[in-house]
């Protein structure tokens, strides 16, 4: 039997609507139920909030208990703002969770180098800390030209981040201010 796309949509639509028999004369409901079962069977549901605009839509991530990986994402039907609906970006949450283009190792680019090198966290954080201390100590202004105490680090600046959680934002600003930074900016300014 040759099916046109329109026929197929009619059939699959009928199956979703729960009619006993499909246009092809047999019951598609068990097939439909089975296919849905495969995706999220035994998966753990975790509510989250979309990472894009600030409407704050609820998303449910389904995590496989076997692999620990997110296998499916969908709008959170209980969420009072979005009631399960999502825009194109929110609906693509799955591709953030499962994406082979993610950077998975620390990368370092040496002065005047043409390529990245992979590095360990341990080496990297120690090296960054050395540079932070060197820049801070070299650029630290204890008193300004008028002789007023300012205790300020003038040589390091920071931008970011509306992409962090609140708890990370607060911790980040505490670190920056303890170091004496005053050039602290982020997305809200642009």
């Amino acid at each position: 039997m040759k099916l046109t796309r329109r026929d197929f949509l009619k059939i699959s639509g009928a199956a979703t609507a729960g009619l006993a028999l499909s246009g092809m004369g047999f019951d598609l409901r068990p097939v439909h139920a089975f296919s849905m079962e495969l995706r999220t069977k035994d998966a753990k549901e975790s509510p989250t909030i979309c990472c894009y605009c600030a409407v704050g839509c609820g998303i449910i991530c389904h995590t496989s208990t076997q692999t620990g990986q997110v296998v499916y994402t969908e709008g959170d039907a209980d969420h009072p703002i979005n009631g399960g609906s999502l825009c194109a970006k929110g609906a693509a949450a799955y591709q953030i969770a499962q994406n082979d283009r993610r950077i998975t190792k620390v990368l370092y680019r040496a002065p005047n180098a043409s390529e990245w090198e992979e590095k360990s966290w341990d080496w990297t954080l120690k090296e960054i800390a050395k540079r932070v201390k060197k820049s801070r100590d070299a650029s630290f202004t204890a008193k300004n030209e008028k002789g007023l105490v300012v205790n300020r680090c003038d040589g390091i600046v920071s931008v970011g981040s509306a992409a962090l959680d609140n708890e990370e934002c607060w911790t980040y600003q505490a670190m920056l201010r303890a170091l004496g930074l005053v050039y602290i900016e982020h997305q809200a300014r642009i």
């Binding site: 909030i49 979309c50 990472c51 894009y52 605009c53 600030a54 704050g56 970011g160 981040s161 509306a162 992409a163 962090l164 959680d165 609140n166 934002c169 607060w170 980040y172 600003q173 005053v182 050039y183 602290i184 900016e185 982020h186 997305q187 809200a188 300014r189």
Partner: peptide, 15 residues
Amino acid sequence: GESNVQGSTDHGLLF
């Protein structure tokens, strides 16, 4: 326009 630009502003990530 950012999911937590309200929170990051509330928490003073600005000069």
